[in-house]
Amino acid sequence: MFDLRVRHQFNAASLDVHVRSDARVLALFGPSGAGKTSLIKALEGSFAPEFAVLKAAGKTLLDTTQSIRVPTHRRRLGVIYQDARLFPHMTVDGNLRYAEQFGRAKKLNGAFEEVVDLLGLERVLHQRPATLSGGEAQRVAIGRAILSQPRALLLDEPLAGIDQARREEIIPYLLRLKRELSLPMILVSHDLNDVVRLADDVALIDEGRVVKQGALADVLANPELSQFFGPSQTGAVINGHVVAHHPDGITEIATSAGSAMLAQIETKVGADVRIRVLAKDVMISREKPIGLSALNIWHGSIVSITPAGARGVVVDLKCGSDHILAFVTNRSLQALALEVGAACWLVVKSLSLTDPQIS
């Protein structure tokens, strides 16, 4: 759905990236100043790189080798920025209807009502932007972008600068957009929790270069990237579905690694969920442990052991069809005689698998 190639020399830095993805949601992840927003600006048309071939949803928007440059206003890209950028003199209804005139010639019957319902905007339609919360304003901005009938959505740090409560208000709507609309999306973020909950593919960008790209689960489970993510963020993602909410406050999720038990979440039985298991929260035992308070005990085998600096190693374990990472000190590595192919038991506390690691 996206094929983005850009090369450009700035005064003190350069950008040289090639990102390709057929996923519904592609995330561009990396630190501030990595080049993520420059790539988005080239795609939307506000930045003209020295070399670029940019394709979105099957349409070539810019190709400097073929002198193709679709004007910005004809690229049909819905862009949502960190700040909502709503018209302050218009009501929410006016902001949304203003966007409709920039859509394709044929107005879609019922589209306005559908978007209002999708984003939960009914009760704020007659309010002006100044009276909206940060989360409400962002939802209006998203609705305005959708009503312009774009070929793709570009979300440039849409959750940055919003407190956790407002963030939790917006993310369910973004997940609903992902499920119910056939729009490809690019999410720009430096917050890995947002990427884990929303993205299907991810491209890691740092200092103007692509460090790694691919399916989210594959990239996050790559032990060689532990230094990129750091000790607090390194970890795998596993998929499952909710099988029960137990009366003692535990939600049970079926995964290929086994049953995952965690503090109860507000998700329907049968719902698909995505669990992030941080490497720092995983313990390894060579024998099946008993008498522990931890409820998650999974069996696996060691696939690789990767040095992670002076403090120890990252152990990649295969549990069912999933890969789970664990940080282990050098002392424990020797004491347990851990080696590739060895069978192990993994222990993870239920309280380590809480929001925002569930999508």
Rank of each mutant, 00 (worst) to 15 (best):
P158F: 03
S133K: 02
D322N: 09
S21C: 13
R139T: 06
A279E: 10
D201F: 10
A111S: 02
R311D: 06
G258L: 04
V202P: 15
H299N: 11
R209C: 10
Q164N: 08
L295E: 02
G300V: 09
G312H: 05
R5A: 11
D201G: 14
D206N: 06
L278V: 07
N222I: 00
D16H: 01
G94S: 04
L15T: 01
G300K: 12
R151W: 08
A342L: 14
G58H: 10
G58N: 13
D201N: 11
T234N: 12
A145V: 00
V273R: 07
A56R: 02
V195R: 06
L216C: 12
E224K: 11
G78E: 04
L4E: 05
S182I: 10
A257W: 00
P172C: 07
Y173S: 00
R5S: 13
L351M: 12
L86A: 06
R311Y: 03
H246E: 15
D218I: 10
V6N: 11
L28W: 01
M283Y: 12
T354L: 03
F87S: 02
G300P: 04
L225T: 11
L118N: 01
N11I: 06
K268Q: 15
A13K: 10
R69M: 12
W298I: 01
V219D: 06
R104T: 12
A111T: 01
R69K: 10
M283F: 11
F228G: 02
D93Q: 07
A257R: 02
V219P: 04
Q213L: 04
A99S: 07
A326E: 02
L153W: 09
V6I: 14
S46A: 15
V219E: 03
D83K: 11
L39A: 14
T329H: 03
A141W: 14
D272C: 12
R76Q: 12
R179S: 00
A137E: 12
A152P: 05
V79A: 01
D156A: 07
A141K: 13
D194A: 00
A335I: 13
L204W: 05
Y98Q: 07
S46K: 14
G58A: 10
D16L: 02
A23H: 13
V17G: 09
A137T: 12
F229W: 08
I324D: 02
D316I: 06
R76V: 00
L39Y: 15
P71G: 10
R123D: 06
A12V: 03
E50L: 07
L181A: 00
V347A: 08
P307Y: 05
A56T: 07
V79K: 02
A137P: 10
S352C: 11
G235C: 09
E339M: 08
G214D: 14
V277G: 00
R167Q: 08
T65L: 14
I142Y: 00
Q138S: 12
E168P: 01
G208V: 03
N193W: 01
N193R: 04
N109C: 01
R76N: 09
D322R: 08
A254I: 09
